[in-house]
Design a protein around this nucleic acid. Structure first.
Lengths: 223, 223
DNA sequence: ATTTGGATGAGTGTATCCACTTATCCAATG
DNA sequence: CATTGGATAAGTGGATACACTCATCCAAAT
């Protein structure tokens, strides 16, 4: 069963399990508070419990699931306070990333940013992947900071709140101020002042938080 | 071997392995680039290699070790750029923590801070645990921010650079400007201006970075 | 002497097995 | 009828077993 050298699967079963569960959490197939049973997941993706368990550990370290000894693994729901906390952390980390990115942005980058902004806006009308586009937009900017650990941390924080963004976006309307806020960020990047761009990005993220947490409060999204 | 209900050991073997390896990395018993062999560690702390492997996963997620498929687990040495990056991240995250902490600090807290500063200074003369004291000082301040995820992230970053701080402190002299910088931070906290305290802490951490990375460059500490 | 190819052994990844813990449910009891 | 206690099932943590990969080393060939 294990010896198919021709298989082009991912290098390890653990990695496969990790990505599978991660995707499930991000798309809210696995909802906050839901218990993840190793055996079920293992059989679904055709492996034993062990690599799944190891994937759990990775997810737990990233704060995406909670493992209590002898009580299994549950998807980590965030309280309203925790959602806010994640936004605070993103606020300073993405602020830092933007500050570092500013001197490295070239005209190609700005062209791509305009494109991403458009795509985000268009997806908002028809498709439901505004969240993914929005994420792309932020990540593209941050990628210019050229700081791998910083990027990974930002991405990890984003995954954490992505399910809540999706719920929000699904129930409420698309954030109408988003377009202009993001345009303002692009303008600020073009202006080339790192401190100003950092401040603007920080503020942008922080001001998004109350809207989302307020909505989460209404719909009892917290854990 | 497993059924001793009276044993007050840590709840899981994985947790025990994790703490064991973590301590080893922090104290540089396990040095950067060194390969960690599950079987060896497992027998040393009296368990099988599986919980050790799981501990590896956790450490890898935190960036403390590197796991390459079929090539084992090595302690993650940081390049000079990466050390700098970690300081940058600490700079903004601890800045945030301080900003949030300021309104929550009371006179008891300041008394404790004075004590911690003294202890840090005293340990600098005789013992070699200035690094641990320094860490306590920073963590105590940050703890008042009341942000669990933020604290964990800061702690995780600190562990990453702790071995380098130890090498630095061992080879070079104790940072002489440290005392006054930390006193300035305490003063700033007493003044009660969150923004000012944030800026000062940010700057304190950022200015420490070049000293350490410069030293690391000399002694070829990078991986 | 240097290079190459294969044997050998160490180490890794996963599956399976076992002991133990926790949860569930039902019956007996107050 | 509510409560409690125990049987039973479900699930978790850890150990072991096994197949495979990678590194090392030595011998043969150039």
């Amino acid at each position: 069963m294990t010896g198919f050298s021709s298989m082009a699967t991912t290098s390890t079963a653990e990695g496969e399990a990790y990505r599978f569960i991660l995707a499930g959490i991000r798309t809210a197939r696995f909802k906050a508070g839901e218990r993840l049973i190793p055996e079920e997941i293992a059989t679904e993706i055709g492996m034993s419990r062990m690599p799944v368990r190891e994937a759990f550990r990775r997810l737990a370290t990233e704060g995406l699931v909670l493992i209590r000894p002898n009580r299994g693994c549950v998807v980590a729901g965030l309280t309203v306070e925790e959602i806010f906390e994640v936004f605070e952390m993103r606020s300073v980390l993405e602020g830092l990333a933007v500050r570092l990115a500013v001197p490295r942005l070239d005209s190609d980058a700005f062209a791509e940013l305009d494109r991403l902004l458009d795509r985000m806006e268009r997806s908002g009308d028809g498709g439901q992947d505004w969240v993914a586009r929005h994420r792309e937009f932020h990540e593209y900017i941050c990628s210019f900071a050229n700081r791998p650990k910083l990027l990974r941390q930002i991405a990890s924080l984003h995954v954490t709140i992505e399910p809540y963004l999706r719920i929000w976006f699904h129930h409420a309307a698309k954030p109408l101020t988003a377009r202009e806020e993001h345009q303002a960020i692009i303008d600020s990047l073009r202006a080339g002042d790192p401190a100003a761009a950092e401040a603007l990005m920080s503020e942008h993220i922080l001001t998004t938080a109350p809207t989302l947490t307020g909505f989460a409060l209404e719909t009892r999204g917290g854990g």
